[in-house]
Design a protein around this nucleic acid. Structure first.
Lengths: 250, 250
DNA sequence: CGTAGAGTTGAGGGCGGTCAAGTCGTGTGG
DNA sequence: CCACACGACTTGACCGCCCTCAACTCTACG
């Protein structure tokens, strides 16, 4: 039986109920189920720069992010690194961590996390089909995103990659507002399969062309959302799209 | 009530019970559950080259492969294509196909598939937690694979990509045996984020160096599995690994 | 045997990586 | 409060890996 301090319990409920992001684990659990989860959960704080999942050790737990931002990484033995995703408040992670495929996770902002020991949560899942169903949805969404990332990494140019990243990160923000960009240029590069220099050059060019603006190194302002979307390469010009649809319907 | 011909029912059971691959949907269903699945399943044959999931239409069904090989694709409007994976007998697919993220699937060998209408299967899932649990495992495995692919596409050199692909495709085959390679050079290129010419050049070089051999364009023989694994870049030389471990433990 | 598509090989070019120098911004100690 | 230092970022020059273009060969199939 695990005892939870009031603060930790509050963190846990926030963690499980955070409804900020539409895809979080929320609104699907009964009070009884919540209590079962609370019994195995452990609330932690992670300072910036600290890894909370190590590459070498097989992940022994699932995590839910209650605040801050973290990066998920895959690393080659010679040090080359690929960031497979950024996770924020409300995100659930650990599903992809099996014995055979190690991956790491590190805070890029001070992080609040909720830790669920793997075996205990898996045991609970068999009694909570709602939660398992939710996790399947989460995994499917992550899978779809990973496939988009594969398209980006395999077939997009450097400019398209940076534009795609900025567009996605700025999604559900209105044009003109300041958007926090907690990661470094190096982390953006590791996410997009580029180098720091290339990312920096392209950001400078987009700034020069008036598509985006920046306040310091960690604040982004989108000036021309439409241009950004065009540069991302996922959609063609409307005229072209129309002609394509006509061609397809023939 | 759907009526199944004896041939179709035989295809379905083969489809659901195929135990060839350890990760297939098998051995977790009662006879009653099997009957429920059979009631909504539809067995189809797909000739080589034909798409059975179209990019444009949101996927309205799940599929289980009962024989042959297919490719899963993501395509940019200008025609650039990324193959996100190859699927074979026993594989389940459709999980990543949501309304917002279209992807396509096409047979590269004559294909036997088992089609499950999405809504009907989803309705069944709520009554069959075993199956939902199995699908979660499938999704997690796919997710881990997708992350490995991101590392490959983002950070590996052309030679490392080709070597990784050959090593993975030849996995669980003994060295020296002939391995079917049903996809074209162009499909390998689209999977690895390279061009046909680069793939061809690297295969020629590996052949010249005695690492692999080929019989025609669609048969592979691995001559030096260890060399192939080294070239893939995922593991270092043993000596180096040892020195690294010493450095890490300090 | 002939044709069409797939694959191979070579020559040259460009995009993004590498190397290097300089600038900015933030925190720290005098 | 300012001088300093360190790290993150920017910018430029150059280079190399892989792409592009092109010609040729091989394979499969009628």
């Amino acid at each position: 039986m695990t005892t939870l301090t009031p603060a930790a319990l509050s963190g846990l409920t926030r963690c499980l109920h955070c409804g900020v992001r539409a895809d979080s684990v929320c609104g699907v659990l009964s009070n009884e189920e919540l209590a079962s989860l609370a019994a195995i959960a452990e609330v932690q704080s992670v300072p910036r720069g600290q890894a909370f999942i190590e590459e070498q050790s097989p992940a022994s737990a699932f995590f839910n992010i209650s605040g801050g931002t973290a990066k998920l990484t895959r690393t080659l033995p010679d040090g080359r690194q690929q960031i497979t995703g950024f996770v924020r408040s409300g995100d659930f992670l650990g599903l992809a961590a099996t014995e055979s495929f190690a991956f790491g996770a590190e805070a890029i902002e001070p992080l609040g996390i909720c830790r669920f020991p793997r075996r205990r949560l898996e045991a609970l899942l068999s009694r909570m089909p709602h939660l398992e169903h939710r996790l399947l949805q989460v995994a499917c969404r992550d899978l779809a995103r990973a496939q988009s990332a594969m398209l980006l990494l395999g077939r997009k140019t450097a400019t398209e990659r940076v534009a795609s990243f900025l567009r996605d990160w700025a999604a559900d923000h209105r044009p003109g507002v300041e958007i926090a960009l907690p990661m470094t240029r190096g982390e953006i590069a590791d996410y997009l399969g580029l180098t720091i220099e290339t990312v920096s050059r392209i950001l400078s060019r987009l700034r020069r062309e008036g598509v985006i603006d920046t306040r310091g190194n960690h604040t982004l302002i989108v000036r021309q959302a439409r241009s950004l979307a065009m540069l991302a390469g996922d959609e063609e010009d409307d005229a072209l799209v129309c002609s394509h649809r006509q061609a397809a319907s023939r």
